[in-house]
């Protein structure tokens, strides 16, 4: 099968494949067929996914299909809007056409969250130090993405900013290294340490506020077939001016919080439970609170050193 990095294809071939819906993105465990028609999402895709393997061959089987389209004929021409269509009915909110990169990223998230049942999925950022993974569990405003992006600067591998994808047989996490989604104040923070070349243009006034994306590095893509064994779970809380603090929590509580964040735990059923229990064996879980990125990094270093040999 013919699969090369996106940036190795002629520009016109990529654009044509995206417009006709024949481009297949081969990222981590998932192949996704993508159809885009507006300039902005096409540019965004070509930029943010440049290092990712893709195929423009129609004969490639895909797990998911994602199409960005106008919500109806009227909105194709008048006050143009766009909506992600993952191939099943979903009440996604139409966005103005200028926000198509956000619609695209939301669409990919929907595709995985609502259509993957081969792996248990939890809403969390995952980074890895070699083959050992750190789970950064999501709590809105907790600073999951900022911390994920900051750890990338410390040479951690990015597995995912959005999903912990648990292989239920191996009890390891799969990499799905997509752009890290940054909101509001964290955009400038990440631009500061990663360099503005690594961060996309900012989309202003979206339903989630200002949004920008930090690109995965080529090394994250090269190593994406290497699954990692989770060792530590953090539940971060960013509070302005807070003292850096960590508090160990019971693994059962960590499990309950992970389960509550999972879109497919109920669907998979018993195997998701036993897989999660196997994963948690020997792990440690902490709540951490901090008021600055430096403090959060110091906490991670300290806890990682204490628990991972």
């Amino acid at each position: 099968m013919n699969r090369r990095a996106l940036s190795d294809y002629p520009r016109s071939d990529v654009i044509h494949a995206l417009r006709s819906g024949t481009l297949a993105l081969d990222l981590g465990p998932f192949l996704t067929r993508i159809k885009l028609s507006d300039r902005r999402s096409i540019d965004f895709f070509r930029d943010m996914y440049a290092a990712c393997p893709v195929s423009i061959d129609k004969a490639v089987l895909c797990d998911f299909s994602l199409c960005l389209r106008p919500p109806n004929k009227f909105r194709k021409y008048f006050r143009r809007q766009i909506v992600p269509d993952p191939g099943f009915q979903f009440p996604a909110v139409p966005l103005p056409l200028e926000m198509s990169p956000l619609a695209f990223e939301m669409g990919l998230n929907l595709s995985v969250a609502l259509q993957c049942f081969r792996f248990a999925i939890f809403h969390a950022g995952v980074v890895a130090d070699g083959d050992n993974a750190l789970i950064i569990a999501a709590k809105s405003g907790g600073g999951k993405s900022t911390l994920t992006a900051a750890l990338m600067e410390e040479d951690w591998r990015l597995l995912s900013d959005e999903f912990a994808i648990l292989d239920l047989d191996a009890a390891t996490l799969k990499a799905y290294p997509r752009p890290v989604s940054l909101k509001n104040a964290s955009i400038d923070v990440v631009r500061g340490f990663a360099g503005s070349g690594q961060v996309s243009d900012t989309l202003h006034d979206t339903p989630k506020g200002a949004i920008a994306y930090r690109r995965p590095r080529p090394s994250d893509i090269e190593t994406m077939q290497r699954a990692a064994k989770p060792r530590l779970i953090l539940f971060p809380r960013f509070t302005d001016g807070a003292q850096a603090e960590s508090r160990e929590i019971d693994l059962a509580d960590a499990a309950m919080q992970l389960i509550a964040s999972s879109p497919n735990y109920q669907v998979i059923g018993e195997r998701a439970f036993s897989g999660l229990m196997t994963m948690l064996e020997g792990m440690k879980a902490y709540e951490i609170e901090y008021g600055s990125t430096e403090d959060s990094l110091a906490l991670v270093r300290e806890l990682w050193k204490a628990h991972v040999p």
């Binding site: 192949l31 797990d63 993957c116 049942f117 081969r118 669907v267």
Partner: peptide, 11 residues
């Protein structure tokens, strides 16, 4: 890939 897709659908 087909086996994976079908397994997913079965689940």
């Amino acid at each position: 890939k087909l086996a994976e897709i079908l397994e997913n659908a079965r689940l």
